[in-house]
Amino acid sequence: MNFAIEAKNLVKRFADIAAVNDISFIVKHGETFAILGENGAGKSTTMRMIACRSPLTTGELSVEGLNVKNADRRIRSLIGVVPQENNLDPDLNVRENLLVYSRYFRIHKEIAQTRCDELLEFIRLKEKANAKVEQLSGGMKRRLIIARALLHRPKILLLDEPTTGLDPNVRQEIWEKLEELRRTENLTIVLSTHYMDEAEKLAQRLIVMAHGRIVVEGVPHEIIKDKVKKFALEIREADSFNLRQTDKILSQKRGSTHLYFAKLPKI
């Protein structure tokens, strides 16, 4: 069977450090696939390799059946990239951002105009078409970056931490748009994220990465059932008083905040 993405023993080294260390995974057509992990886990490097922005040190990687080593141009015409950082063009207005970008995909001018209107409608930014990028809110910018990645009707959408730094209702809005895209456009979506809730909400399958390796692989709700404790108690400023800890409760310390996890609440 042909997969949207197939990675075999993927390794990426920067000098002596292995940012990605022998990982293998597949992404099926039409599914949303999440790569979960902390900063430095190797998520972004994996995404960069898929986007043909980072040559592999060793291993095999194919995207839509094409090898990243010799078909990078073709691959980049099949994927839409939503980067972690805002890289909209501040020298251009909202509409120009889409039109100028469409030239890099060699989209005919008239088709680009129509597609641009369609996408501005889809992300509800039509009335802001002539606004400067700086005038947009964080959520609007994110929506515009997603629209820009969809200009050429890609088969795969790559999103690197799509909702990091956004407030909860904007995150919700972005999630709805992504879900709509997967459903209506039959897009394959690959996203990297820090957030389990985001992966759970969007992804059909996920991998969890740590130190360049895959530590867990599977279906989100099963992983949550299996690995995440049912109850969590968060105590802020916990250093200011003593808490006794039993073996059945797992604790995690983040600064002066203590998190306690248990399968059953013990009160």
Binding site: A51, R53, D72, R73, R74, R76, S77, V81, P83, E85, N86, N87, L88, D89, P90, D91, Y101, Y104, F105, R106, R148, A149
Partner: peptide
Amino acid sequence: YQSTYDAILATPVN
């Protein structure tokens, strides 16, 4: 500062 090159290199342009 503007990451314009990053944006362009996400397209078929090499």
